[in-house]
Design a protein around this nucleic acid. Structure first.
Length: 519
RNA sequence: GGCCCCGUCGUCUAGCCUGGUCCAGGACACAUGCCUUUCACGCAUGCAACACGGGUUCGAAUCCCGUCGGGGUCACCA
């Protein structure tokens, strides 16, 4: 169900136009370089990117690496590769820089320090000398009493303060939350959300070791980078309220917030969980972008699918080009309830996109998969290339993702024929089939030229002359030369395979049928 | 447990703000039929939902309240 948004919340109102005249829209995505890009993350980035592109603004990429230094480079590179592949380009960020850099949080220490100084000067922040033991005792007590745990400032005498300082006792910096206020967030997707400051504990903004924490660092960055629209996952909705306080304390203009619902696991409304990723994969469901790339999905298709996961334009359009998405995307048509990942739908969208891909491009897309399996050379010669082209052409719409070439077209490239047991059982283990294959061998030996038209005519005449139904000729012949029960048109298969291969495979198949009891 | 968000076919969604045109529309998946040498494509048909309970109203998917369910948050993680 779509919640009602205030009239001013849409992208198209007169109020908005006035607003846009004053400043350009700047959005951002801030991934942690911890691993691969999850499709939920890609969707969040996509919505940010689309919003920026829609309004001629900028999309900023910022690496959220606050307390990790280890081998971030490789992880960042993988994330950037993913964005480049799908076509999400960034105006500022890693590798290209920009006027609000650096774009790695680990390199923004000066910015955080300056902001901290301001907050100390304005009295928003205080030193917390409590120990881990004290806090965990308080948390346990809260849990036992079934209360929420909230840290509040413990008044210290001047004497204590002086003593702790003299001791060099470590302290964290906390934000002192003003009590008795109700914060109202005008979220573009969730609508107005109110939150009492009593519900927010004094939160740490800087750890004793000097590391800034998320609720503080991200606000400082967003202010510095002049981010106007924060579009992020709804798990941050509650975090927004402490952040609102930081924006206010910094004297910054509030950005527009939009919290998008989480991506649920397939067939359910439960949130996708990292722990269950192995289970999803067991069921054949992929959750990382790179897995779709590796299987030969098209970037247009993945973008199209992801855009529709939680967003719709109207009651009928499913297929959108990148340009259409940029023209039609708006936050007010983002759904406020979770969407679950539907790989079948992605597969269908992929199929629709594959239909639009020109032959040359399909051939190029398929080559890496064949080369990887050693079925062709990685730099195919012209004759090899024209063969691939013929196969891709014959495969037609059956080729949904590039890696399908291995499933559907392997027999065109492999030397030995591999018989599918089910197909053999269904089409070949029948009275008289072996003998018929012998006759067909003779027929193919004589058919000349060995092209689609001639072959088709020859097989038709054969069926007519011998009084057989076409299906009873064609199906066994297909299995005999391809090993498969399904595939492109038979005459395409025969012509591409060529006379020599067809005859050799017919012999192999007959030999197989002669073996007693073999499958 | 407190607080916050969310709940329309199995799934993505339209409709909700501005109650009647909705015995709820489209798409994926599934089933059946047609096309067809197989499969795929295409075409046609079918299956299938307003979480539940109250209230307001002549009339509720739509407004209000409650219940249940899902999620988030309550970290010196992000």
């Amino acid at each position: 169900m779509q919640t009602h948004r205030p009239a001013s919340s849409g992208q198209a109102g007169p109020l908005c136009l006035a607003f846009r005249g004053l400043m350009t829209i700047r959005t951002r995505f801030a991934p942690s370089p911890t691993g691969y890009l999850h499709i939920g993350g890609v969707r969040t980035a996509l919505f940010n990117w689309l919003l920026a592109r829609r309004h001629g603004g900028q999309f900023v990429l910022r690496i959220d690496d606050t307390d990790r230094e280890r081998h971030v480079d490789q992880a960042v590179e993988k994330i950037l590769d993913g964005f480049r592949w799908i076509g999400i380009d960034w105006d500022e960020g890693p590798q290209i820089g920009g006027s609000s850099g650096p774009y790695y949080q680990s390199q923004r220490g000066d910015h955080y320090r300056r902001a901290v100084e301001r907050l100390i000067a304005s009295g928003h922040v205080y030193r917390d000398y409590t120990t881990e033991a004290q806090r965990s005792a308080a948390k346990k007590a809260a849990e036992r009493d079934k209360r929420a745990y909230r840290f509040r400032k413990v008044p210290l005498s001047d004497h204590e303060l002086a003593q702790y300082e003299a001791e060099g006792r470590p302290y964290a910096l906390r934000f002192q939350v003003p009590l008795g206020r109700t914060l109202v967030l005008a979220d573009q997707i969730k609508g107005d959300v109110s939150f009492a400051t009593e519900e927010i504990g004094d939160f740490v903004i800087v750890r004793p070791d000097g590391a800034p924490l998320y609720n503080f660092a991200s606000v400082v960055d967003d202010v510095d980078m002049k981010i106007t629209h924060i579009v992020r996952a709804e798990e941050h909705l509650s975090n927004t309220f402490p952040q609102l306080l930081v924006f206010e304390a910094l004297g910054a203009t509030l950005p527009v917030f939009a919290h998008i619902p989480y991506v649920a696991e397939p067939g359910s409304r439960a949130k996708m969980s990292k722990r269950k990723i192995a289970d999803y994969e067991k069921q054949g469901v992929l959750v990382y972008l790179h897995q779709y790339i590796e299987r030969g999905y098209l970037p247009e298709a993945v973008m199209n699918y992801l855009s529709r996961l939680g967003w719709s334009y109207d009651d009928s359009q499913e297929i959108f080009t990148r340009q259409e998405l940029i023209e039609k995307f708006s936050l007010d048509r983002v759904n406020s309830s979770p969407a679950s990942h539907d790989q079948d739908k992605l597969f269908w969208v992929q199929g629709e996109w594959m239909k639009t891909i020109p032959l040359d491009q399909k051939v190029a897309g398929v080559i890496p998969f064949l080369a990887q399996e050693g079925l062709i050379s990685s730099e195919p010669k012209p004759d090899e290339r024209s063969r691939i082209e013929a196969v891709v052409q014959a495969l037609g719409d059956r080729l949904k993702i590039y890696s399908d070439i291995l499933k559907l077209g392997r027999f065109f490239f492999a030397d030995a024929i591999v018989h599918d047991p089910d197909a053999v059982k269904k089409r070949l283990r029948k009275e008289g089939v072996a003998a018929m294959l012998g006759e067909l061998e003779t027929l193919l030996h004589e058919t000349d030229p060995f092209d689609v038209g001639t072959l088709e005519k020859a097989v038709h005449e054969f069926a007519e002359k011998t009084g057989r139904k076409m299906g009873d000729v064609v199906n066994p012949l297909r299995v005999a030369v391809t090993g498969q029960g399904v595939g492109p048109g038979l005459y395409d298969c025969l012509a591409i395979l060529g006379r020599e291969t067809c005859l050799a495979r017919l012999q192999q198949t007959r030999a197989l049928l002669a073996e007693p009891g073999a499958a």
